[in-house]
């Protein structure tokens, strides 16, 4: 069992957790992830490591409650325990001094873009960050991103904060303004990553995306996380999760990620029904 030492919401449905596991805290590098399992009947889900603290041996993850497991996780508080955490898994991000880099985080993807932005900064890059969200109250890590950035931008789809529009509008603006961009890292929902990829390709800007296929073991054993990259089959858990965006088959990734949509819905409905019943029992 592994203890949660801190838990707080960053925005609606987006929660930050610190979990005690000194070995991972010490080892992890930007871009790597952990796999967790909450309880005996739980599934194994991958979550990117947002940060870690070697002084208290904790690993930070940021979770958006969308399906049953993530919603169940977001019910947990400091002091609670989870059954399993394993990692750090995956290849660390490839970091070097590229020159000018743009780190783009969409929604909870910002949590994943953040540690790499830190590493890029440490490597001496001119770091630009674009932090995108649907709406003002969903913007996360604003302060943290600002701190590591030479230029920090925020975009909201509905214009309630920062620039009105998508992260790609901002990126387009930078390109149009003549910013010489050497490297882009985009992390977020698949359509966003694809849009960034389509935008940078004609400009020949090296672009990396962090993929989030369905995983089980995270060690290369099951092949469930396979993605088509440059016409070749790659296992995201050991070869990735970061890949050259211009080579990724996003359509296949989208299809494969939707494989269990109905099941996930059913699972969530049952869970929410159960939660409601439990609440009623507590009331009476």
């Amino acid at each position: 069992m592994y203890q949660i030492t801190e838990a707080r919401f960053l925005a609606q449905d987006i929660k930050l957790f610190k979990i005690k596991e000194p070995k991972i805290a010490e080892k992890r590098k930007a871009g790597q992830f952990v796999i967790i399992r909450i309880e005996e009947h739980g599934e194994r889900i991958p979550l990117t490591i947002a940060d870690s603290d070697t002084s208290d041996g904790t690993v930070t993850i940021i979770v958006q409650g969308v399906g049953k497991t993530t919603k169940q996780l977001n019910m947990l508080e400091a002091g609670d325990e989870i059954m399993d955490i394993v990692g750090p898994l995956g290849m660390p991000s490839h970091i070097e001094n590229f020159g000018t880099t743009v780190s783009i985080g969409g929604g909870v993807g910002t949590a994943i873009a953040y540690p790499t932005a830190v590493a890029l900064k440490q490597a001496g890059n001119h770091v630009i960050t674009i932090n995108g969200a649907r709406s003002k109250d969903l913007v996360i890590l604003e302060e943290e991103m600002k701190e590591v950035s030479d230029e920090a931008y925020i975009t909201t789809d509905d214009g309630t904060y920062g620039h009105h529009g998508f992260v790609t509008d901002m990126l387009q603006k930078l390109i149009d303004d003549g910013t010489k961009i050497d490297f882009v890292l985009a992390i977020g929902p698949i359509p966003m990553m694809k849009a960034v990829s389509d935008l940078t390709k004609p400009h020949g800007i090296k672009t990396i995306v962090s993929l989030n296929p369905i995983m089980i073991d995270g060690t290369g054993m099951c092949g469930g996380c396979r993605v088509a990259v440059g016409g070749k089959v790659k296992f995201a858990c050991v070869d990735g999760p970061e890949f050259d965006a211009h080579d990724v088959d996003f359509k296949n990734l989208t299809d494969r990620n939707r494989m269990y949509q109905e099941y996930e819905k059913k699972s969530l409905e049952l869970y929410e029904h159960e939660c409601k019943l439990n609440k009623q029992i507590v009331k009476t």
Binding site: H41, G42, E43, D217, M221, C222, Y263, K266, S267
Partner: peptide
Amino acid sequence: ANEFLTRVNLMKAYLFPEYDMP
């Protein structure tokens, strides 16, 4: 086969939704 078997044997997908993995 590894994924198929792991889902069923290790993660007990044959007992979905009692177990979470489908």
